[in-house]
């Protein structure tokens, strides 16, 4: 172990006790930030023409054409109980849902962060109106951010779909 001294400093750092991390995508809706596992997302596309879906609740924005596939887009603000519908959200996050995609409209993507799992804290389920969607909370740049299970969010809004 004495030759460890000769190793470049960055490799020594790797030898330290390692806490696994989770890669989170942090996005904004109004004044709130939320985070989800990066793996849940397939793609991020800019907001585009959305065809309104009559008969659907406020939590559903409508349909977009994604390279020939019709994708249903959920209204992020309304679904997460933060803001009223009808604002022009800037981005659509595409989520793998069963064997297809569902879009979620958000204002902005703030960051992608690797957060050590020991920094995940508990959060109150009642903070958003979707049962079981909150899996915890993390602190990012001094702000408390709710960590969501995005599949649960989608399921609560559109059920099994099809």
């Amino acid at each position: 172990m004495s030759d460890a001294v000769a190793l470049p400093p960055e490799q020594v750092v790797e030898e330290e006790p390692h806490v696994p991390t989770r890669r989170l995508l942090v996005f904004n809706i109004g004044d709130s930030s939320f985070a989800c596992d990066m793996d849940s997302f397939r793609e991020i596309v800019p907001m585009q023409h959305i065809t309104r879906l009559p008969g659907a609740p406020d939590t559903v924005r409508g349909l977009i054409n994604l390279r020939g596939t019709i994708v249903t887009v959920i209204d992020g603000g309304t679904s997460l109980g933060k803001l009223a519908r009808g604002r022009a959200e800037g981005l659509i996050l595409l989520v793998d849902y069963f064997d297809r995609w569902i879009g979620i409209g958000v204002d902005d993507v703030r960051d992608i962060q690797d957060v050590p799992i020991d920094q995940f804290g508990a959060a109150d389920q009642a903070e958003i109106p979707l049962v079981g969607a909150v899996t915890g909370a993390v602190e990012i740049e001094g702000q408390r951010v709710l960590v969501l299970d995005i599949k649960t969010v989608v399921q609560q809004v559109i059920g099994q779909g099809r």
């Binding site: 008969g55 994708v71 249903t72 569902i102 559109i158 099809r162």
Partner: peptide, 16 residues
């Protein structure tokens, strides 16, 4: 094409 609809929208439309 099929789409993921919700409640009433599923009965009103047969596809997109």
């Amino acid at each position: 094409k099929q789409f993921d609809g919700v409640d009433a929208s599923k009965t009103l439309f047969s596809g997109a």
